[in-house]
Structures are given as C-alpha cells and as structure tokens.
Measured scan of single mutants.
Amino acid sequence: MEQGTVKWFNAEKGFGFIERENGDDVFVHFSAIQGDGFKSLDEGQAVTFDVEEGQRGPQAANVQKA
C-alpha cells in the first residue's frame, strides 16, 4: 500500500485526487473508500491506498484513512 495526502475531494460529485509520496496525483472515486457510512475525504487528510489501472489511467483503490 502507498501513503498519500488528499489534495482535494468533492463530496457532491464523489471524486477527487490524492497526492502520492512521489508527488504525482492519483484519481480517487468515493466507491474506493473503505468503511461504513458516508464516504468522503477531507483536504490534507492522510490516507493509505493501492493503485490500479482504470479506464482513464491510474486510480486509487482500497482507500483507508490513516
């Protein structure tokens, strides 16, 4: 798993971006967030995640709040 920081996340649209430790950004969809209840992330929040190849390039999977 990688570690990163939430760059931004739009809860209304259900997606955002995580900044990886290497400085690259990776797309995150709310469906990739682990846990119960409303799935959202806060700007600046530390997270761990896997990276999978999506239809439009790399995207975060198995996102967990650190």
Rank of each mutant, 00 (worst) to 15 (best):
Q3E: 10
F30W: 15
F17N: 02
Q59E: 10
A11F: 10
Q55Y: 15
R56V: 08
A60D: 00
A32T: 05
F9C: 03
K7P: 01
T48E: 06
F27N: 02
K65N: 08
I18W: 01
G23E: 09
S40F: 13
Q34M: 13
V51I: 14
V47Y: 03
A32H: 06
D50K: 10
H29P: 03
A60W: 01
G16P: 00
Q34P: 06
R20N: 06
E19S: 15
R20C: 06
A46R: 15
D24G: 12
Q34S: 12
G57D: 02
N62W: 05
F27S: 02
Q59C: 07
A66P: 07
H29I: 04
N22Q: 11
E2G: 08
P58Y: 10
G44Q: 05
K65R: 11
V51S: 04
I33F: 06
G4M: 00
F30L: 06
V26C: 05
E52P: 03
N22A: 11
Q64M: 11
D24Q: 13
V63I: 05
G4Y: 01
Q45C: 08
D50F: 13
G16D: 00
F27H: 02
Q3G: 09
N10W: 12
K65A: 12
N22W: 11
D42M: 14
S31C: 07
D24C: 10
H29Y: 05
P58A: 08
N62V: 04
F9L: 03
D36A: 11
T5C: 11
K39H: 07
N22T: 12
Q64E: 07
A11R: 14
K7Q: 03
G23C: 06
F27D: 01
S40T: 15
D36S: 13
F27I: 03
F49W: 02
S31F: 05
Q55V: 14
V26Q: 01
E19H: 15
F17C: 05
V28N: 00
G14I: 02
Q55G: 09
R56L: 11
I33S: 02
V47W: 00
F15V: 06
A66V: 15
G35D: 09
T48S: 10
V51C: 06
V26I: 13
K7I: 07
V63Q: 01
F38M: 07
M1V: 14
D24F: 13
P58C: 07
G23S: 09
A32N: 08
E43C: 10
F17R: 04
G37R: 05
A46P: 11
A46D: 09
H29T: 04
A11L: 10
A61T: 13
G14P: 00
Q3C: 11
V6F: 02
D42C: 12
K13M: 11
E21D: 13
M1Q: 14
I33E: 02
N10P: 03
V47M: 02
D42R: 15
V28L: 08
E21C: 12
V63G: 00
D42H: 15
G57E: 03
A46T: 11
D50S: 14
A61N: 08
Q3N: 12
N10M: 05
M1W: 09
A61I: 13
A46N: 10
Q45F: 05
G23Y: 09
N10I: 05
E43H: 15
E19G: 13
T5E: 06
Q55P: 15
G37N: 07
A60V: 03
A60R: 00
S31G: 06
M1Y: 11
I33G: 02
N22E: 12
S31W: 06
K65Q: 09
V28T: 03
